[in-house]
Design a protein around this nucleic acid. Structure first.
Length: 563
DNA sequence: GCCGTTTTCGGCCCGACTGTTTTCAGTCG
């Protein structure tokens, strides 16, 4: 809007995304070792200096200057569908519009009619967007992974019934496993694109068709979620999947790499660039699968969960990330004894049906009174019932455990003598989740270093779009966990995903163990495992460092080592 | 502003769709 070089704008965007996905403590670097900031791909001298300013001054003077050049209500206009910087600048300079309210009244008064390139249809669309924004009162929301993925799958199930559909899959940030997504991206391979389009725009729950062409279409569902569809020929499915999965930065890097090798990459395939004056080849070097395209670009295959990164030279070979099918144990589950819905036997049967060799019964401790936490006496009786259930059910190890509260000062909710009777101890913070970072660090380090604790459950206590939770010094937690062989939990519930992806990466880099658990309260919770695995994969976790993926003997030897 | 297995200067991904235009600008993903 200020007429700045668009490449410069993009450079700042890239730097922002790069720092967002960074697992190292950039504030500490800014204070102690500012040169290291420039080792991050996309951050140069200028941005590094801005980060130092932000950390030391609490503000970035250049940003304040820029803000002073633009009315404060203008940036919000950019978030309206169909309105970009060029049009906002024109609205501002030729119609004096500086806020949503002013735009609204200008439309109502017909004052936009004389603006070049703004015809009646554009104004009608703008009017719709403005009225919707004023009615809802806030910018487009993001949807949590566990809300979006089931929605995507139910839409795909219907698209698969359309005439000519060969395959259908979701892509975008949902496939990359981001904790929240802004929209859904669906990809269909079909011999009858028209049928796919028709099926798409008439899906149940579609409130408005935003765009519809021969190969792509966008709709908005009644709940506000935008869904984009791309229809391709089956032979180009891999190229389209690569394109539609993103991230945008990753795609840009792949395309640049193609250019440097005399090729061109788009959603139809990887092509050899035409000789000057020659016909461009119509048959791609590769297009059918993502794997082929990475190979043709002389790159290892990048799992979707790692495609946030734009640095293509991070690995020489494909990292063997943990997979859903590797998980053979659930180590955090509740029964009717505290706040769960399942009995011990039902829980064990559920775990057996998933092919697990071990299930841990970890009901709440006494401090979690609201969750019917167990007194010492009840816990001791519960242990006896777990032993009986293991003998009765057969074919699976049923561990007697506890999800013991970490009290605000770092002490645990049961004494050591009681904890020592358990096969597994998951220690979790449930209260005092707003304590300052220093207190939180002391508290969590104490729990991690407790000799009877195996797993630190949902370490920060955050709820996505709900509460921030604790903000401990993660480097100190990693160090304590590595030294004491205590695992960090990735809680698979889509409202938690705690540890979060960048912290998993930090823990993995520090050599820590990680557990991926569902914190089962009802049978449906077991289906959240995919989200926990996706989060772990985003953090580069391998099966070797994931305790739930270990063979039974290895897992039980580790558990027994803490006694 | 960032970056370099040709480059420290001169580039910076690529295509679809819409609405406005008689050939294309703006926006989006």
């Amino acid at each position: 809007m200020t007429g700045a070089n668009g490449f410069k704008v993009n450079a700042f965007r890239r730097a922002a995304r790069a720092s967002e996905g960074e697992s190292n403590d950039l504030a500490a670097w800014a204070r102690e070792d500012r040169g290291r900031l420039q080792t991050i791909d996309g951050i140069g001298l200028s941005t590094a200096n801005h980060i130092v300013e932000l950390v030391t001054l609490g503000r970035i003077p250049d940003l304040d200057t820029l803000r002073g050049q633009v009315p404060s209500g203008l940036p919000e206009l950019l978030t309206l569908q169909g309105l970009g910087p060029k049009t906002v600048k024109v609205l501002w300079e030729s119609a004096g519009i500086t806020s949503l309210e002013e735009l609204d009244s200008a439309i109502d008064a017909g004052r936009l009619a004389e603006i070049p390139r703004l015809g009646p249809k554009s104004i009608a669309n703008l009017r719709l967007a403005v009225k919707a924004r004023i009615a809802s009162g806030n910018a487009p929301r993001r949807y949590r992974l566990g809300e979006a993925v089931p929605q995507a799958e139910s839409l795909l199930a219907r698209l698969r019934l359309a005439k000519g559909t060969i395959r259908a899959q979701f892509a975008g940030s949902a496939r990359r496993g981001r904790e929240t997504v802004g929209d859904l991206d669906l990809l269909v391979a079909s011999t009858d694109p028209g049928a796919a389009q028709t099926a798409f725009v008439t899906l149940p729950g579609v409130a408005r068709v935003l765009a519809g062409g021969e190969t792509r279409a966008s709709v908005q569902l009644e709940n506000g979620l935008q869904v984009d569809l791309r229809v391709v020929e089956d032979q180009a499915f891999g190229a389209a999947l690569l394109y539609f999965t993103g991230s945008k930065d990753h795609n840009v890097r792949l395309r640049e790499r193609a250019i440097s090798r005399g090729m061109r990459l788009n959603e139809y395939g990887l092509f050899v660039e035409a000789e000057p004056g020659g016909e461009p080849p119509s048959v791609p070097v590769s297009a059918h699968t993502e794997e082929e395209i990475y190979r043709a670009l002389e790159l290892p295959f990048w799992p979707p969960e790692l495609r946030e990164s734009s640095a293509l030279d991070s690995f020489d070979t494909t990292p063997s990330l943990v997979e859903l099918s590797d998980i053979k144990a659930e180590l955090h589950a509740h029964t009717t004894a505290s706040d769960g819905e399942l009995t011990i036997d039902e829980l064990a049967q559920l775990a057996k049906s998933r092919g697990f060799h071990t299930i841990a019964v970890t009901d709440h401790s006494r401090a979690s009174a609201q969750a019917n936490g167990l007194s010492v006496e009840r816990l001791l009786r519960h242990i006896g019932m777990i032993r009986e259930a293991e003998a009765r059910v057969g074919g699976i190890r049923i561990l007697a455990g506890s999800e013991v509260d970490i009290l605000a000062d770092g002490r645990l909710d049961y004494d050591d003598e009681t904890l020592a009777r358990l096969d597994i101890v998951v220690a979790s913070p449930h209260t005092a989740l707003r304590q300052d970072p220093e207190a939180a660090t002391r508290r969590l380090v104490a729990a991690i270093r407790h000799p009877l604790v195996h797993i630190l459950g949902h370490p920060t206590g955050r709820i996505i779009q709900g509460r921030d939770g604790l903000s401990p010094d993660m480097a100190k937690l990693y160090e304590a966990a590595r030294e004491s062989s205590t695992a960090f939990e990735v809680n698979s519930h889509w409202m938690r995903l705690d540890l979060r992806d960048v912290h998993v990466h930090g823990a993995v880099a520090a050599g820590c163990l990680v557990a991926i658990d569902c914190d089962i309260h009802s049978a449906a919770d077991a289906d959240n495992l995919r989200y926990g695995v996706a989060t772990a994969r985003r953090g580069h976790l391998t099966a070797a460092s994931c305790v739930n993926a270990w063979p039974s003997a290895t897992l039980h030897a580790w558990l027994a080592s803490k006694h």
